[in-house]
Each structure stands twice: as C-alpha cells, then as structure tokens.
Design a protein around this nucleic acid. Sequence first.
DNA 1: TTATCGTATGAACAGGTGATCATATGTAGG
DNA 2: CCTACATATGATCACCTGTTCATACGATAA
Lengths: 122, 122
Amino acid sequence: MPEKDDGLCQQICDHPEVVDVVRQSMPQDGAQEELAQLFKVLGDQTRVKILNALCRSELCVCDLVSVLGMNQSAVSHQLRVLRDTRIVRSRKQGKNVLYSLDDRHIAELIRIGFEHVQEGRR
Amino acid sequence: MPEKDDGLCQQICDHPEVVDVVRQSMPQDGAQEELAQLFKVLGDQTRVKILNALCRSELCVCDLVSVLGMNQSAVSHQLRVLRDTRIVRSRKQGKNVLYSLDDRHIAELIRIGFEHVQEGRR
DNA sequence: TTATCGTATGAACAGGTGATCATATGTAGG
DNA sequence: CCTACATATGATCACCTGTTCATACGATAA
C-alpha cells in the first residue's frame, strides 16, 4: 500500500531539494564560528554575573570583586576575556579601571536568555 | 588638594552603596547558572550550525548530517545536548526523528547574536 | 624615592568537553 | 522471522577552560 503521506522526511531524504536549500542559505562558516565564540564567552557563570552587574552600573574591578565575592585575579582574567571579545569596554580613571557593556546587544541577549530559562521553570 | 571630583569609583569603593544596590538587584545564583548553561550550550560551532539549519526548516537527523557534512554520531550527540536543554524538540515519524527549535527565543538569540558579531566586522 | 593601592598576567593543575569508534536500539519491509 | 535503515549511546582520548597562586605593572601619595 503506497501510503505516501507517511513522510515529509522520506521526501527530503529521497529528494534532497530541501536539504540543498537549507545548506545554501546557511551563514558562512566564519560567521557561525564567531557566533559560537560569542555564546561560548557568555556561557560561564562568572562572566554572566559580571555582565549582570554591568547591566546595572559601570563598575571598577574592585567593585566587581566585591559584588561577586570572588578572587580579584579570577575577575580580572574573565574581564580580559570579555574585553577581548568586545563584550565589555574599559576606561581608566585614576588608579581604577571602569568596565561597562560594549553595546546594547549584550543586555538584550541576557534579557531574552532569562526569558527563555524562566519559561522553562513552569 | 582635595580634588574630590576625581572619581565616581573612589566614592563607590569608599561608600559601597552602589555596590550594595547592584548586589541586591542581582538575579539569584540559580537563575544565573541556568542562563550561563543556556549560553554554554549555544556556544559550540556544531550546535550553532544545527540551530541555524533548524531556523530554516524542521529536519531529521540524516538531513542534518547531510547539511553539516558531519558524522552521524557527532550530530546525534549534540542533538541530545540541545534536547536536554530544551533548545530543540523532537518528534518521531516512522523511522525518522524530526527536530525543530523549541521556542521563539532561540531564533531571536541567534539573530541578535549575529547582529552583534556583524557590527564587530566593521 | 618608597610605599601602597588597583589591576593585569603567567604558570600550573583539575575538571570538563567534543569527535570518533564501536555498538545498541528501534522500526519498517520482505 | 531476518535484513536494512535511522537514530541513540557508551567509552575513550586529545584538547580546552577556569581558578588559584605568585608576581609584575602602573598610578598616586607621602
């Protein structure tokens, strides 16, 4: 019995047009690698905490150390990672270095991310 | 010379009110950990590629293997990670398993992420 | 200058991660 | 039943990551 209805997927596998369309509309490898790199840097609890703090106020390193309750060295190392990825920016003021979010996208990614995880808690 | 103007940060460090406000308005540790976990899962090139493909169409595993040009085992392993994190969902159809994005947040995170990395290319 | 404070950095080590290989499970057809 | 196909899973291993410790750098004040 030729129950053809059984599968979009059969058709895709047998007639790979859809696969071809998807493959050809995929972003370039380089862009996808950069995107993965961005998310990878966001994907660490210490860095998430730093960014959440910077969402609220520009802060110097010792402030972040105080807020996070962590080793100064650990915070500095992570700030370097965030700076190198252009997720935060820094400016000097006297002995201190003040950090802030680099651009509006970062706060938005965090906001949407929270929306997603909070929906999951239902 | 009491040049008091030299620093917001001095004031913050000496008078930790701002730090306290920030600390008290921080999300709970659990929520931040979940957020970091979400980004961590998004922060891998193979998984980013899978999600970009699923942004375009619901696809079965063999389609994804074809689009990504990767080992079936590697793809299945990553799909499991994505499923466990509720980033994708799956449904069975005959011999195949069709995967799709779990909810609208995922596509939006990818879109905003791309916006950010593309601004960086200027 | 010297001392001190704020920050950055290098080394080292433990723990985690992703690809591969081999194999298992499950489903449909003959 | 047996076979073929689609997918999932466990083990292994090379590689990467985050924290800590020690220390260096740079700016300010005495």
